[in-house]
Computed example of a mutant assay.
Amino acid sequence: MRLTGLIAVLLLIAGCSRATVEEPEPSPTGPSAPTTSSAPTSAATTTPSSSKPSAPPAAGAPIADVITWIEAGRPADPTGYHKATRDGETTDLIDDIAFTVPAGPRRVTTCMTDAESTDSALACVVDLVNPPPQPQDIYGQWKGGWIDYGGNTLRVGSAHGDPGRFLHGAGAELPDGSSLSFGDYRCRADRVGLFCVNYAHRSAVLFSPEGIGTFGCLQPVPPPADAAKLFSCAS
């Protein structure tokens, strides 16, 4: 009887030794990832918009300001300025440009290019309020408002026995606030006058009935005998 009880105790001890203890299973979601707070950034960065100049450049303005003013004008289509009209007859100028700008009551500025000219790619006849007087020893028809602008030179006043390049008349009107680009030049019409820049020489001119203004490298130099004034970029 005692033997039977002893066997039962031994069997109970052996069964307990083979028992395993289950450990708690890890959470299926795993450890929580640290949360990253998206703090609001500083005020949104704004790109400053380049504002258009509100007024024409004054006398002595830097050439960069003059160019900015001219380029702020509404671009005109150059194809509409390849013709000139005189007495109702229209002539195709082929590659040359002709345009007219109103310059106050009953005053106009007429401009035209000449591809065959060796000293002036652009000429304008300005109805000046006070045109320069005719120099001594100059014969022929003096035109004090005839301006030759070659980019690196500006010549005011000259004698002409014939209309020259304006033989075929005048070109179409360039409206106020519009700009016209041709060759190395770009011009903008304004109530103050006509502003033209020559990019090749970084010079500019204001054609106005009140007078002719220069910008950039153009500086006054002694004029030749057949001109009233001369400006040059030569140092």
Results as ranks from 00 to 15, higher is better:
residue 153 T to L: 08
residue 123 A to T: 15
residue 98 A to C: 02
residue 162 D to M: 03
residue 149 Y to V: 01
residue 167 L to T: 15
residue 186 R to F: 01
residue 87 D to W: 12
residue 142 W to E: 10
residue 189 A to D: 05
residue 80 G to Y: 12
residue 134 Q to R: 15
residue 168 H to G: 01
residue 169 G to F: 10
residue 107 R to A: 05
residue 210 E to W: 03
residue 166 F to Q: 02
residue 213 G to D: 15
residue 26 P to R: 13
residue 1 M to F: 11
residue 71 E to H: 05
residue 116 E to S: 13
residue 67 I to C: 00
residue 135 P to N: 04
residue 136 Q to M: 02
residue 39 A to W: 15
residue 201 H to Y: 08
residue 187 C to K: 12
residue 152 N to I: 06
residue 181 S to A: 11
residue 172 A to R: 12
residue 234 A to N: 14
residue 233 C to L: 09
residue 29 T to N: 07
residue 108 V to N: 13
residue 77 D to S: 07
residue 84 A to H: 04
residue 155 R to P: 00
residue 98 A to G: 05
residue 46 T to H: 04
residue 170 A to R: 10
residue 107 R to T: 04
residue 128 L to P: 00
residue 86 R to G: 05
residue 144 G to E: 08
residue 118 T to D: 06
residue 63 I to M: 04
residue 87 D to T: 07
residue 124 C to I: 11
residue 45 T to H: 03
residue 161 G to R: 08
residue 203 S to A: 14
residue 61 A to Q: 12
residue 130 N to K: 12
residue 102 P to G: 00
residue 133 P to R: 10
residue 142 W to V: 09
residue 94 I to Y: 14
residue 183 G to S: 06
residue 141 Q to T: 11
residue 163 P to D: 10
residue 81 Y to A: 07
residue 173 E to A: 04
residue 103 A to E: 11
residue 63 I to G: 01
residue 58 A to R: 08
residue 110 T to W: 02
residue 221 V to C: 05
residue 99 F to I: 08
residue 208 S to W: 12
residue 158 S to Y: 06
residue 166 F to P: 00
residue 51 S to G: 04
residue 88 G to V: 11
residue 167 L to H: 06
residue 101 V to I: 15
residue 69 W to H: 02
residue 85 T to A: 08
residue 90 T to H: 09
residue 65 D to W: 07
residue 33 A to E: 03
residue 232 S to I: 06
residue 121 A to W: 10
residue 98 A to R: 01
residue 35 T to V: 11
residue 30 G to S: 11
residue 200 A to L: 03
residue 51 S to W: 03
residue 201 H to V: 00
residue 26 P to V: 02
residue 194 L to M: 13
residue 187 C to Q: 14
residue 38 S to W: 14
residue 221 V to Q: 12
residue 94 I to D: 15
residue 235 S to A: 09
residue 17 S to K: 07
residue 210 E to N: 09
residue 213 G to P: 01
residue 165 R to K: 15
residue 222 P to A: 02
residue 83 K to L: 06
residue 209 P to G: 06
residue 109 T to V: 08
residue 127 D to R: 07
residue 54 S to H: 01
residue 43 A to H: 05
residue 108 V to F: 10
residue 166 F to D: 00
